[in-house]
Write a protein that binds this DNA or RNA. Structure first.
Lengths: 342, 342
DNA sequence: TTGAAAGCGCTAACAG
DNA sequence: CTGTTAGCGCTTTCAA
């Protein structure tokens, strides 16, 4: 072992070893660098022997941007978003980008996210499941950092962002249609977090289709996206004045997690059969939805397509010609399982 | 608005505006920088007005390391590790570090993880739920990047790493003890991925305690950590020759997800009562474990403590004086629910 | 094509 | 305590 192993090899080291200038080394590592195929090959060869790879920090510094993408997520435990996160990381990698992961809890560290984006000159920021203030988006725009919203957006906003979302309205419609076709008469909606576009669109689509059939929701309530809330909501249905005479025979829950709580409570606390006494439908298609204890009918979010669209946006960078929100809806499929009648 | 908004403000800009040298600005932003409180305040003031924040890329470049921590995760869907990931990101943030998230699928992008670590001069790499080749660890060590293993390690290894792990052996023992105390006689183990330390330790602890009571496992099998595998394993128990005469009356599953499949299959395919006919215990304490449909007894991984230990390691950096693995076990508590007799 | 040189924004000696 | 200076490792003109 004659070689003293330096911790890190620089382009200068390679240049010396290869008998070329440092800039030649840089060019060799630039895809469309003006350099002869021959010298490039030689340099790459030497670089490889020395274990050299370009320093991303220096590169990003001089180019004023790197391959980092900031991924913002909100405190919440929805298995669907865990899947999103994994997929996102995977796809970003495949596109030569890296995920800088940040959890946002409240206003104060929303500012932290801005800071981080600036400090690392990130390419873009992807916000998933964030209930955002449009000022945050504006702040990102102000420092020239593109914002992509995943599965959440604001309708009335002049903020410049691109959003990728499941077509939640259409999903709500589809569910109503299926339930109607199964001859259900009395419908309940158990929603999630009220001020989220996912909750609103799913509900509105549901109500819309029901309305066209001349039917009103007999029960509607929303609070948060959790199992416990699903349980609680069922108790509220049974506690409501009208419950002694007319119970809903179909319940649409704004997401699967809520639906799971609804089913368990219906079965175990109130001795109801699902779907014989009441049909229950969710939204997302999380892994647990297909467990034998539930067999939950649901709308599957088209994660692959949503991911592909997100990557497309990252590549095409349509941010500069934006005059307002650019929202892209992608339709999901209804999955018929055994928690709802057919 | 007289000010022309430059995209990014540099320390030089601040220096000019504040009438000080650029290095003064740098010092103002260095916690223990030698600078008078007065000038610091002034500089901070001006910086704030200009919207300046130090460029992390430049800083990392010159310091030869930044505040990035690479987090490696393996393709797998265990809700427990989703929680770990979120916690990790959160704690890292609180310690002023950032999570650079990378998914590792196979050998080829194990190399990618090395490259990334090098390119960004990461502080450390945390591997969670990775079945690793010790060569990868060695490669990280070779370029001076500390490795922390989360909930997985290799016993016979000379690799230099620090590991934080739930005391899985002890957990297995505790479960055996509880089950023994409930007067169970015939025990089965349904394991997860065979070559993982989590699976081995949980099993060995279980067998150890059983052995001390003079009892052998009547059924043992392992394959992977999934719901479907739990289902499949139960079918195998019932299909085994001895099953007509003696079925196990207590089953320990290497993790909760497997246990969920076991319970559903026991109840719905074989019409058994849990825990009346058979007790089922899992490991992890994922959210679904406490759903009313399961009420799974399990060992709760002490995530908070494990996280705290991980952060401690990151701060204290005991990596240099390492002559081999430094494994830190943290004990988890048994949670008695209704899937097992008391 | 190639090399020399400037500079991205910052930290860390080194004088004063 | 403060300013000056020299890089960190790279990309990018600019000449040659």
């Amino acid at each position: 072992m004659t070689q003293t192993t330096k911790k890190h090899v620089s382009s200068t080291d390679v240049a010396k070893a290869a008998g070329v200038s440092q800039s030649a080394v840089s060019r060799a590592f630039t895809p469309k660098g003006k350099i002869s195929a021959k010298t490039r090959e030689h340099i790459l060869q030497v670089a490889n022997e020395l274990g050299y790879s370009p320093n991303a920090l220096a590169r990003s510094l001089v180019k004023q941007h790197g391959d980092l993408v900031e991924v913002l997520t909100y405190r919440q435990s929805n298995p669907f978003y865990d899947a999103v996160l994994h997929q996102l990381a995977e796809h970003l990698q495949q596109h030569g980008k890296q995920a800088l992961f940040l959890k946002v809890e409240d206003e104060s560290n929303a500012q932290e996210s801005l800071l981080l984006a600036k400090q690392y000159r990130v390419q873009a920021v992807i916000m998933m499941s964030i209930t955002l203030t449009s000022t945050l988006i504006d702040q990102f725009s102000a420092i020239g950092i593109p914002v992509i919203l995943f599965n959440r957006y604001q309708k009335s906003s002049s903020a410049k962002f691109v959003a990728v979302s499941c077509n939640n309205f259409k999903g709500g419609q589809d569910i109503a249609e299926r339930l109607l076709a199964a001859r259900h008469k009395r419908f309940a909606f158990i929603g999630g977090k009220p001020n989220t576009s996912t909750n609103q669109d799913r509900r509105d689509g549901f109500i819309d289709k029901l309305g066209k059939a001349g039917i009103d929701l007999s029960f509607s309530i929303e609070r948060e996206y959790s199992y416990d809330w699903g349980c609680e909501a069922v108790r509220m249905i049974f506690a409501s004045p009208s419950s002694t005479t007319v119970l809903p025979d179909a319940i649409f829950c704004a997401n699967d997690t809520v639906a799971l709580g609804v089913i368990d409570t219906l079965k175990l606390e109130f001795n109801k059969q699902v779907p014989d006494d009441v049909s229950v439908v969710g939204f997302d298609d999380i892994p647990t939805a297909s467990f034998k204890a539930y067999e939950l009918s649901t709308v599957q979010q088209p994660l692959d397509k949503m991911m592909a669209e997100t990557m497309k946006i990252l590549e095409e960078r349509p941010f500069d010609n934006l005059s307002g929100p650019d929202i892209r809806f992608i339709e999901g499929d209804f999955i018929q399982r055994n928690s709802s009648k057919e």
